[in-house]
């Protein structure tokens, strides 16, 4: 989708664009989340839960966590490509990374809306 918007179709360019798009989304989400914490200053469970139940907090946290998983996938993929020379080991690690990141994304949704 991002590659479509930016008019970029080659895989490496798509990864490059997605890495930066998710980075900027995370920066924006962090600013909003820190702002929420600064305004409400949760000191107990009730306030903490209240802050986390605001739609703005939920959306920001979801944007942050999903962006983080996409961003981590691209980064770890590069790290594995550079340091793990054995093809099958690398393939296994890639699958494990992807599986855990998809799991984290679903887990995040469960935490925020469960």
């Amino acid at each position: 989708m991002v590659s479509l918007i930016l008019g970029i179709s080659r895989p490496s360019m798509r990864d490059w664009a997605l890495q930066r798009t998710t980075a900027i989304l995370m920066l924006l989400a962090i600013v909003i989340l820190i702002g929420m914490l600064a305004v409400y200053q949760p000191q107990d469970h009730a306030t903490w839960k209240q802050v986390a139940s605001f739609e703005l907090t939920r959306i920001s946290l979801l944007v942050f966590l999903v962006s983080m998983c996409l961003h981590a996938w691209l980064g770890i993929k590069d790290v594995l490509m550079d340091y793990v020379k054995h093809t099958y080991t690398r393939a296994t690690l890639r699958v494990l990374t992807l599986a855990s990141l998809i799991g984290y994304t679903l887990w995040s949704i469960l935490i925020l809306w469960g």
Binding site: H45, A72, I111
Partner: peptide
């Protein structure tokens, strides 16, 4: 970056536990 990737599950556990009760 690798440190941050490895710590994700711990952060999710903290978020979940602190919101649960």
């Amino acid at each position: 970056g690798v440190i941050l990737f490895l710590i994700i599950p711990a952060l999710l556990i903290v978020l979940q536990t602190s919101l649960a009760s």
